[in-house]
Design a protein around this nucleic acid. Structure first.
Lengths: 230, 230
DNA sequence: ATGGCTATTATGTCTGCACATAATGCGAAG
DNA sequence: CTTCGCATTATGTGCAGACATAATAGCCAT
């Protein structure tokens, strides 16, 4: 007899994987399961809700709970600050600010951030180093409205770390892809032009008033892997 | 006055982002918050638990709840079956089995799956197509012990779909990276050798008895983006 | 037969209570 | 003065009951 909601979750997973409850089939109601397991309905609910969140079950009011047809596995990653990643490997971390200017961003960036086309943003390019060797080339557009006066010294602190520490919790999106190294990226990262780079693109807005905050593209040096348990 | 656990969660996020509750600081106990919000402690608990799971709060018994110092954002992706991705875009899906053999896998693969070095596995290479154009090149090693006799016809159903439908819920890990297209990949995907490809590597084991199931490397055609909301 | 209304039912959420568990810090014993 | 142990306390989990919500199924009227 399972005891505790985690045991119930395990039992349910067991029944799904052994096809006692076949894919696409209806499973007993919370009532019935609570009775069978000798626990309260809330306990069953907690277990089933979690599995529904994980994509293993599909639940609808009145319709009941059924085993998901194609279980969409969800992988989750911790998006860490680069400094933390580097120092966690026992390496020395440094940032170098390569360029800083005030300019109108490319159309795609302005659109994604919901800014008018002519708006000028702070354009920063920097290089993250581990033990002196280049790791990540960062190309960032930053809404100057979020900056205080005087502007923080981004030669000393990475923009990302300043943002994390000083700008309100915000929403955004993130995308991963692969791209060939551009001339500038190849030079900064000390790789051949055209080398395959892992690209992280992040777009952040919101904060207080749904304002645009920043758009950033990180080009990771070859060898970078984004890894997680399923 | 917030009503419902989602409203409480929103209020807590608000207080964190406006620094009413500063980073690293202790927040009031569930008791106190339940009193303030005029709800039961369980309701507060649900909201805070969720935020702790999201990495925004850190909770320890007796020690209380504090705002996370560096909010490690967690991005989660739905790892979909390729067919679903393609048909969701309104394109026609097809798989072509390019090669099939029984051989000893590379050392790295055998190690990751925890198999003895000499063990022979089923080696399958296939190509996933959308509207006839190549999308993903798949290189897979499969433990023959998980297959029934007779073996499914992998020319008709993709290995992944067969596994999802027929092998018990399993654990594993997944990694993303970028790599230059090998000669075989370039040929299959109709791109130039050396082109930057987005690589997904998945390693699956477990099932019933922690047995190795499969190791697979997916090379995505240029243009592929893995995207999610933060 | 068909279309719409209603009763039924499964899940979603909340309450108030209880006990379990873990970590902290203070006090007593050595 | 140090160290062990216990009381305190905040979170984790469970239970029973209640109402809310949504969606189905069946009934009734047309």
């Amino acid at each position: 007899m399972p005891k505790g909601w985690e045991a119930i979750r395990a039992e349910v997973i067991q029944r799904i994987s052994t096809r006692i409850w076949p894919a696409g089939g209806l499973i007993p109601s919370e009532q019935a399961l609570a009775l069978e397991f000798g626990c309260a309905r809330a306990t069953v609910n907690r277990a089933l809700s979690e599995l529904a969140g994980a994509g293993l079950l599909e639940r609808k009011r009145k319709a009941g709970t059924r085993v998901a047809m194609l279980p969409v596995r969800k992988a989750s990653f911790a998006i860490a600050v680069i400094r933390a990643e580097v120092t966690a490997r026992g390496q020395a971390y440094a940032v170098r600010l390569l360029a800083r200017s005030l300019a109108a961003p490319p159309l795609a960036v302005a659109l994604r951030l919901g800014l008018p086309q002519g708006a000028r943003m702070l354009h920063l390019q920097s290089l993250h180093l581990a033990d002196g060797s280049p790791q990540v080339y960062e190309d960032r557009w930053l809404n100057p409205a979020v900056l205080p006066l005087p502007e923080p010294d981004f030669a000393k602190i990475s923009v990302n770390e300043w943002l994390v520490a000083n700008v309100a919790y915000a929403s955004g999106d993130i995308a991963f892809s692969a791209a060939a190294a551009s001339a500038a990226e190849a030079l900064a990262l000390a790789v051949a032009p055209g080398a395959a780079l892992f690209i992280t693109e992040r777009c952040t807005w919101g904060g207080g008033a749904d304002a645009a905050i920043t758009w950033v593209r990180l080009a990771h040096a070859p060898g970078y892997r984004l890894q997680t348990l399923l």
